[in-house]
Design a protein around this nucleic acid. Structure first.
Lengths: 348, 348
DNA sequence: TTGATATTTTGGAACGATCCAAATACTGAA
DNA sequence: TTCAGTATTTGGATCGTTCCAAAATATCAA
């Protein structure tokens, strides 16, 4: 009290009870008499008491810290920002608070922040792993029995739970959609070839082509960093080639918008002269001109589900790794020229 | 050791020293002999020791928790996501870790999370206050001597430090720019009228008009929620009126993009038929078509500065509230028709 | 060898909560 | 009044660290 911080002992003294009783009140125990409870609560309010969770955690089992860690690879990407918001939402409702760290795809940063979070006593971790993350990076956590949920990107070989969107089906249906509209030369834009997601999506793309009766042409795959600027460059490469595609599916929406830019730079109008399908369904997808046809994954929903999965494991006490695949769906808007475009017009 | 968690005592036993020595090693004290230090470190590695910051904080002064709280009003807005990234950057470098909570403009959420963060022992707080925040909401914190930095939005009357962008100058120079290009009827789009920022920006707009020799016409101010969708509606209202503006300054870039949409819906091309200036300079501003002329505020830089300010106060031990205004600058791109537009073409 | 001095190491006693076993206060029936 | 039975309350001991004063050890000049 004198030194600034009010403790249970100060409350006990002021209320004329023992610290144990105050502790009981704090925990909402039914053992304490209604009269004492209200008196103690009143004193707490009067003295401006703040509960010291750190002290409590020391005595209790480590899993009760009410802190979870969230590590994302790129918070400036609105997909991950939405994801973080989704996590935050359910985590807050459960009375938890989250450490949020951004790694900017740096593995060193990732190991650093995870170590730091451990020291601070997180009771679980949701991580969207930095590029190149290996099972070894999470080894210490899982062998310490800490629940870990990997989202968006898999960590091959790691014994952690995972929540991934259905990449294969997503690209499959994107290709199917374009094929149905009459396109026969369909390109694939964006993504780093050395990632698992890229491979999953590429497989969906190939299978989609096969299902439509087309062959797979490596020359129609334009990998690049999944950013708007790189997407613009990728489509420039595609249109410079001899046998041009008439439409394309993109690794994500950012790339798709880059494709818009790249087309316009060549005086081609997206959705009229070229059909585009994105992936993610970021907020801008619905309001852009033309509105982007895309594969919706609902990042906020994914965040919520990831947090629920994690909380379930924390409460269960034991972390049984499980893999969840979240469904995606094709959202048809204007960028494939429905009602706007003559399909296949520049073909052959 | 047996129960799972490795403590300093386990280390001490295994290394054949006392726990005090281990503690000294942990703190990198120069008092301990080089030989013992390496041996202790080796043992720590072998046993997989994780430092328990919670326990340490208990003994030490509360200001050393190495945790700071970050509360933002809307993380789905990329401006705030960037801000959070900037904060994260310097906070991580300083060996801190951040609690990040999103309030979605809910005052209740805000008080909840701040209370929760206090219980967890944060040593400082960066907050971008939810709409309608009052000094009272931060009273408990400041009277407890906790450093608080309010960013982006002011909290009138609160004794907290603040870091605001130069709203007045920003809008002043936006108007000046349009006037220089020959525009005489300049509208103002977006923003909530009951916020301090809106008033600051509006004042900059008025002063800019006055400096250019124009009068202030209330009918040219189209306030609305600062979102893309509402921006589109606002410009629709503007163009429906009799004496149309030929250009406009916007509350932020989101509104500006909404104005793009609204214009296109009326078959008007932004940057050709109508001049637009945004505010914020979000990432998309440079890559949109046309590229958006805007007032750059560098949210990530603001985040960094806010974090630095906070860390300075934490280290100083005493929280002397100070107000910092960060400079803004006009970034001229294509949305005002430089090289593209006949200024004032639809005037009169 | 012996102090004196400098270098290292070390047992408790905190920090602020929880938990447990045991004490105390109530209740109503005998 | 006493006693069993229930309802409340309560002192330690404890969690894993830091801090302090004091002890042990090493170093060295006389």
């Amino acid at each position: 009290m004198a030194n600034g911080r009010v403790t249970v002992i100060d409350i006990a003294k002021a209320a004329g009870v023992s610290k144990s009783t105050v502790s009981l009140v704090l925990q909402g125990s039914p053992l304490v008499n209604e009269g004492t409870r209200t008196k103690v609560n009143a004193v707490m309010r009067d003295l401006g008491y703040v509960y010291n969770r750190g002290a409590a955690n020391l005595r209790q089992s480590s899993a009760k810290s009410k802190i979870i860690g969230v590590v994302v690879n790129d918070l400036t990407n609105s997909f991950f920002a939405e994801l973080a918001v989704g996590i935050d939402l359910v985590v807050q409702d459960a009375g938890f608070v989250q450490f949020l760290a951004n790694t900017s795809e740096s593995l060193d940063r990732q190991t650093e922040v995870i170590a730091s979070m451990r020291e601070h006593g997180i009771s679980g971790l949701v991580v969207s792993p930095a590029r190149g993350s290996r099972a070894i990076d999470f080894k210490a956590l899982v062998s310490a029995g800490m629940p870990v949920v990997a989202v968006v990107r898999p960590v091959p070989g790691a014994k952690v739970s995972s929540l991934m969107s259905d990449n294969h089906t997503g690209l499959f249906s994107a290709v199917e959609h374009l094929a149905k509209l009459g396109h026969t030369r369909i390109a694939f834009f964006g993504g780093f070839e050395d990632t698992a997601i890229f491979q999953e999506r590429l497989a969906g793309y190939r299978d989609g082509l096969a299902a439509a009766g087309f062959g797979y042409d490596e020359g129609l795959v334009f990998a690049c960093a999944p950013s708007r600027a790189e997407g613009a460059k990728a489509v420039a490469r595609a249109m410079a080639a001899g046998d041009r595609p008439t439409g394309g599916v993109c690794f994500n929406d950012a790339v798709a918008f880059g494709v818009y830019d790249g087309l316009r730079a060549r005086r081609l109008e997206p959705g009229v002269d070229f059909a585009i399908v994105g992936f993610d369904d970021v907020i801008e997808a619905g309001t852009s001109v033309p509105a982007l046809t895309t594969i919706a994954v609902d990042p906020q929903g994914m965040g919520r589900r990831a947090a629920q999965l994690l909380l379930k494991q924390i409460n269960a006490g034991k972390a049984e790794a499980e893999a969840v695949v979240t469904p995606v769906r094709l959202v048809v808007r204007e960028s494939c020229g429905v009602n706007r475009m003559k399909p296949g017009r520049r073909t052959a």
